[in-house]
């Protein structure tokens, strides 16, 4: 019994590491870049879109995993799409009602989550082949990985391009967050390019480069530590 749980725990850890780092949807799979680049001129926008995407991912992964044995494979793609579209529309309506201003700022990018390939990819590649518990873990960590990139990108761009951090946090957290904004000193001249579209590409490129650099360093240390047998790359 305990070894079964150990096995499960091991699997979860595996899924989590893939979602957060090894198969990060934004940095490795490069999926969902259009909203990623468009809304990250501000930390709060990035966080908002990240959470919305995660909610859709979670719903679609759970539902797809639940019905995976009952849907013939010929119609699975249309069914997945129906589920995702439905989830996106529900979340769009909920955000419209409860985060009105943020919904206005994120605008078209909330409904566009439906075209985020990452979600259909997870439904097809993972949830349709795995039980519900694993699908939930997968959705959570894929979502967190994507959201983290959005937050880091948003924070970086906002800090450099606007000289602030967590500006307009009240859009997401309500009135308690009115004073959360951190301002750089007035003598700082914002580099406005960072919040313009080119800044998104440059910042994302730097993040990807940083990730590859870390991977390279890790690889080097593990390579020198243990003689690894060469595995076929799958």
């Amino acid at each position: 019994m305990s070894s079964l749980w150990q096995q499960k725990w091991q699997d979860y850890q595996d899924i989590a590491q893939k979602g957060l780092w090894n198969n990060n949807q934004a940095l490795v799979a490069l999926l969902g870049l259009c909203p990623l680049l468009a809304v990250t001129n501000n930390t709060v926008n990035g966080l908002g879109l990240g959470l919305a995407t995660m909610a859709v991912l979670l719903t679609s992964n759970i539902l797809v995993s639940l019905i995976r044995d009952h849907v013939p494979s010929e119609i699975r793609i249309p069914v997945f799409i129906a589920i995702i579209a439905c989830a996106v529309t529900v979340i769009d309506m909920l955000m419209h009602a409860y985060f009105y201003t943020l919904h206005g700022i994120l605008g078209i990018f909330i409904p566009l989550i439906v075209t985020n390939c990452a979600i259909l990819a997870r439904a097809e590649a993972f949830a349709s082949k795995n039980p519900v518990d694993k699908s939930i873990v997968d959705a959570l960590f894929i979502g967190i990985g994507f959201t983290l990139v959005l937050i880091v990108l948003g924070a970086l761009r906002e800090l450099i391009g606007n000289g602030t951090l967590f500006d307009q946090a009240w859009l997401l957290f309500g009135d308690v967050a009115q004073n959360w904004t951190i301002h750089l000193p007035d003598s700082y001249n914002p580099v406005m390019l960072a919040i313009l579209p080119p800044g998104a590409f440059i910042a994302l490129g730097l993040l990807i480069a940083l990730k590859n650099l870390v991977d390279q360093k890790v690889k080097k240390t593990t390579l020198t530590a243990i003689p690894v047998e060469v595995k076929p790359t799958s």
Binding site: N189, M192, L193, L196
Partner: peptide
């Protein structure tokens, strides 16, 4: 171009 977009006032 970087300067013009970043610091248009200057």
């Amino acid at each position: 171009a970087f300067l013009l977009l970043s610091f248009p006032a200057q």
